[in-house]
Structures are given as C-alpha cells and as structure tokens.
Design a protein around this nucleic acid. Sequence first.
DNA 1: AATGAATGAGCGTTCATTCAT
DNA 2: CATGAATGAACGCTCATTCAT
Lengths: 205, 205, 205, 205
Amino acid sequence: MNNRKLSRKEREQLQRRTEILRAALELFSQKGYHNVSMHEIAARAELAVGTLYKFFQNKEELYREILIQTATLFYSALSKVLEENGDEYAKIRKYLRTKCKLFTENILAVRLYFAETGAGVGISVKKEIETELRSIYEQGTQKLAAVFQAGIEKKIFRPLDPYHLALALEGISNAFLFCWMEDPDRHCVDPDLIEEIFFERIRVG
Amino acid sequence: MNNRKLSRKEREQLQRRTEILRAALELFSQKGYHNVSMHEIAARAELAVGTLYKFFQNKEELYREILIQTATLFYSALSKVLEENGDEYAKIRKYLRTKCKLFTENILAVRLYFAETGAGVGISVKKEIETELRSIYEQGTQKLAAVFQAGIEKKIFRPLDPYHLALALEGISNAFLFCWMEDPDRHCVDPDLIEEIFFERIRVG
Amino acid sequence: MNNRKLSRKEREQLQRRTEILRAALELFSQKGYHNVSMHEIAARAELAVGTLYKFFQNKEELYREILIQTATLFYSALSKVLEENGDEYAKIRKYLRTKCKLFTENILAVRLYFAETGAGVGISVKKEIETELRSIYEQGTQKLAAVFQAGIEKKIFRPLDPYHLALALEGISNAFLFCWMEDPDRHCVDPDLIEEIFFERIRVG
Amino acid sequence: MNNRKLSRKEREQLQRRTEILRAALELFSQKGYHNVSMHEIAARAELAVGTLYKFFQNKEELYREILIQTATLFYSALSKVLEENGDEYAKIRKYLRTKCKLFTENILAVRLYFAETGAGVGISVKKEIETELRSIYEQGTQKLAAVFQAGIEKKIFRPLDPYHLALALEGISNAFLFCWMEDPDRHCVDPDLIEEIFFERIRVG
DNA sequence: AATGAATGAGCGTTCATTCAT
DNA sequence: CATGAATGAACGCTCATTCAT
C-alpha cells in the first residue's frame, strides 16, 4: 500500500470520504435508498450537502460505491479462501465459515446487498448497479463451481453439475443467514449445521 | 362462487380493477415501487389518475394488494399440496413441482415479492407490508417443516431439525428459480434437478 | 302564493331543492365553503352528485343561493318592521328585537353570512357574491338610517348623522350577537341591554 | 434590540422572510387563503416554491404567522395605550385614535384578521389559529373592560356592565372602520365621530 | 330525470442538485 | 475548498364537474 505517501490533506480527505460512506451505509441499510435524503446523510456525516457532491457525483454513485465496496470485499475474501491450498472439501468448509463470519460482521452492508440483488432478483435502484453487482456475485459462484468441479474429479463429491452444487450451497447458506438476520436469537448461522444438511449425504463414501 | 350474480357494471368494475393491478404489477416489477408514479400506472391502464384512487386508497395500498394477492395465491396453492394424501416424500416432490410452476407462471409478481421479503431481508416499502408478507411466508415454511417432521418420524428422512430442512429446501429452490429468472435460457427450474441435489443422500436408505 | 298549482312532480322537485340547501347550509356553516365537497353535500342530502348539478349550476351557485336567501329573508323581515306604523323609537326597538330573534333562530346561516360579509370585511368565496350581499346589507342600513332621519326631524333623537347612527346600531348589535354566538351561555343577546348602551348616555355629567 | 448584530447574511434572510410575508399578505387578503397557491406566493415574492418551505413549515404556518404577527402588533399597541397614565375617558379616546390609525395603516392585515375572527364569527382556516387569535382579541377586550370598570368606579362613566361597554365600543368602531375599508372615500374613520355617538346621549330628553 | 363512475387540472409538498459566497 | 440557501421538476392526491346509462 502507499498509505505513507498520503499528505495530511489527503488523509483528511480519505477520512471524510469514509465518514460519508459510513453515514450513508447506516442510513440506507436502515431505511432504504429512497427513504434517505442527501441532507440526512450530510447531517449524520457532520458535513455540508455540497461536500457530498465533491466526493460522489450523485446519490446513486454514493449508493453504488457502498455496494461495490462490500461486494468486492466479500468476493476477494471468499476467493482467497477458495484459492488456498488444501483439498476441496476443506476449501468449501472454510468458505462457509468465512461467509458466515463476513455476513455477521457486516450485516448493514449485507442488508443493502441483498436488497439489491435479492438473492437473485431485485428491483434495484438502478439497473447498472444491479448488473455490476450480479457480475461480481456470478464470478464468486463460478469460482465455487470450479472447486466443486475439482472435487468431483477427485471423487470427493458425487458427479453432479458443479454449478448447480454451487448454486445450492449459496441458496442454503443464504437461507440460513437470512433467517438469522431476521431473528438473530435463532442462531441459524452455525456453519456445521449448514454443512450437515448440505454435505452429509452428498459427499461420496 | 357467485360469479353468476355479477351484473354487467360489476363485471366492468372488476375488469378495471384487474387492469389497474396488471398495469401496476408490470411497472412495479420492472422499475420498483419508488420509480413508478401513479400517473404512469394510470396511463398504462388507460385510465385517469382519479380512477386509481376509486379502487385503491393510495399508492401503498395498491402495492400491498398486489403482494398480498400473490402471497396468498402461492401460500394457498402450496398449502393444499402439503395437505393432500400421500407419503411425505411425495408431498415434498409435488410441493417442489408446484412451486416451480407458480414461479414460472408469475415471474412479475415473484420479482416484487422477493424484492419485498428479499428471501429474508429487504428494505421494504412499508414495514407493515413486509411484516404481513413475512408472516404468510413463515406460515408456509412452518407447514413444510411439519411435513419434514412427519417424514422423520416415519423414518423417511434422516433425523435432522425439520425447520432447518424446510429452510434448506426453500433456499435451494429459490436459488435455482432466481437463477432461471435472471436468465430463463439456463433452464435451472427442473424440479428433478433440485430434488437430486437436495434429496438423494438426505433420504434414509 | 301559487303553491296550489304545483304538481306532485313539482312539489317533489322543490322538496329536493330544499333538502340540498339544508344539507349544504349545515355543512358550509360547520366547516366552511372550501372544506365541504359536493359529494359530502350529496351524501347528506341523500342524492347523487349529478342531481345537485341539475338544481345548481355549480358549487358556487349553491353557496350563493343559501346566502342570498338568508340575506333576503333577513332584509324583508327587518324592512317590514321599519315600515310599520309607530314612532321611530318604537321602530328601532322592534327592529332590534326582530334582529336578535332572526339571529338566534338562524345561527347556521348567520355564521355563513358573516363569514362572507365579515360584518363589513370578508374574503369571500367569490367577489360577486360578496358584492351582492353587501348591496342587500347596505339597503337595510339605508332604511335604518331613514328611520333615524325621521326620528331626528321629530326631535326624538339628537341631530347626529343618521347613517352613522345606523352604522353604530348595527355595530353594537352585531358585537353582542357575535359574542353570544361564540358562547351562547353568556346571554348577551338581551335587546334591552343593547338599547340601554346604545340609547342612554354613557359618560356621566 | 440587537439589530446591530445581524450579519449581512442574516439581514438578507430576514429581508426574504419579510418579502414572503408581504407577498402572502397581499394575496391572502385579496383572494382568501384557499384561493392562493404556494406557487402564486412564490412567484410574487420572486422566489422558488422550495424557498417558502425553508422559512415556513407549510402554507398554514405561513398564514398563521401573518395573523399572529398582526394580532400581536395591534394588541401590544392598544394595551400600551390603556396602561398609560391619565383618566379613563382620555384613555378610551386615545385607544380609539390608535385603533383607527392601526387599522388604516394595516388594511390588508385587518382584512385577513377579520376574515378569521369575523368580528366574532368566522369559519377559519384552522380551528387552532382561530382559537389563538380569539384569545388575543379577548385579552384586548378584557383590558378595555377593566378601564371602563375603573372609569365607572371614579364616576366618569355610568354604572353599566364594563364588558358590555367594551363590546359596544369595539362593535361601533369596527362598524365604522369596516365602512371605511369598503369605501375609503366615505371618511367614516374620524374618531371624534365615533366618540360622539358612543359617549353622548342619542335619545333626546 | 337521476345516477355515480370517470375525469384531469391543480394543489401542497419534497428533495437531488447547483453555485455564489 | 467547504458551505448551505436556493432551486424547480416531479410527486401523491383531491374534488368540481361531466355524461353515458
């Protein structure tokens, strides 16, 4: 990273930008895109409205930034896991664990993310944002499918369509995570539980 | 039914109401609640704005009507399936088939429905609508769980938490249906396919 | 009168018309012209909206009718009193008594009437109505002034400007009647009381 | 006063606010509350609609502000007069002079004021505003009554009910002022004239 | 003649965005 | 460079009026 090179001014700028994103995330995830005004975001970020427009072209762009940032964070973290060494079964298990962790640690962003992609559907704020997000999501699913593919070749998994397996894993884990988001006390986020249902009889042997 | 008793006037009224709902469904599912104006809906229904308000108290009510109608249609159809005679495995299979059929035949409404309930999350148009919908959805999941419970008792299924099984089945099937909704050519809606992944090794024996 | 000549149909028509005026008077005097809709009036008169338009060109005309009717009723009753035989002092006394009676018996209409003419001012629903009403009111004041004029000539009253005397009497009596309308329990409508203040000297010495 | 401390910005703000109030007063007093739109006021004030809402919460509040401002101005000026030193007769004379002056200098506001309080009646824009205004008006009348009471005790005035005397004075003066408002050429606003009629005896003998 | 469903102009209000300071 | 007052298009909604039945 080139953090060292940032002048005081630049650091202050970055700080401000981050502050805006934080304020916006809180508000958007609480009330939804259309029920949050730029004034409200400015007020929460303790800045003037005009300043918001110095950092983001418009409201949509600010929204997009939050979503892309989160999607990228998730994608890169989960990709990394899938690219590590180890057998495919272990990779999937770690993937599940990481996904659960990311979700629970970033609920606000997740809310927004799924409001947009709706676990597959979604009437997004803007079609472009939706497309962009879906593309990132799709890349993730493809990577997951590739791992299943490898696992199938190594006879770790039964010879099913790897993309479908990826889809199914995503579907189950999302369902459990959604359930938890709705009612955090129900403790559905246990990855072992998800694994048991998903794997126990799918795995060969 | 008392369809016979409808006078011409009443029939025309019903027709108009249906026309409004159709126009609204199309627009809402295409652009989302906040990006559709009452004028737009009126124009598409080839009516004056005022007429919309003769049938629906306000925009929200019109939106709610669409969602509740769909949710109820789905819920009653799927409940019926689960209440029919037959062993639990057959019931689940029929449930899956019916769900796929309902989805593919009501894509527009499904888009809206999941935009609201977000398969679990969702920053809804109005909290009341969300709650109402979620309650219907939850009832459905409970009914599904009851069938799994019965199946477990009869040793048809492995002794897992029945609610989790319901959640998982919903998760997987939604994932496949979403995938299809995004790209109808990919033909992911084959219920056999979903069953294979979900069941083959979950079922005892 | 030619009441005899009215056919059943005509009688029914008149009845309907009266019914509309009654309903409108009640509503207008309760909530004011702008806060009453034609639907509301129709509903209270137990008629269809369209029927209202058969009897009155539009909302304004309906309103005008009520006001002109009341103004004419008041004017003719009070004129009659002033034209009776008797000395001028007695006429004024009877005028006052009649005015108090008319007011207390037609509060609803009075409310409307003064809302329009505002005891002199008034931002009326329509300038034309205001002008028309004021003209009737002015005629009344002129007639009253003529009586004062006669009284002055007969040395019954001191030689003051008769129009001013008329104005003053109207002003005082209105003030007392308004006071009563606001709070009917305060019993300010005693004509003797008004007379005492109007006629007898206030300043000692 | 702290007028000195107003920065240029603050002065401009105040100017704008005043400008809005002026435009609104002109229009309201000309056409009445319901026949004036916010767009119209904005246009006359040479501002955008949105700007109106920066200064006043809504149309009603803007209306209320005008009325309360005027009522307070009148009340404080007239109260001051009644609280000055001097005998009661002199106070009433000065009161009358001041009232005439205030009326003639604020005709627009007076029109509105009496449209609301209707010199006693009035179907007001909002019950709350009416109540608030009437309370101010009533305070004024009470103060006037107190002066009459003192005058009666000092044998300056005949022993009549002081509140009724206040009511009568208000009634007469309003009648003359209304008469002048309708037709400014008739010169009815001469306070001497009002006094003569109010104070001296009308009936001969 | 009576009806009341349909109309659509026009209202009050909001809020993303701009730009003079 | 940050500010926030000003803008005005666009919204949801109402209601006087019309006209086919």
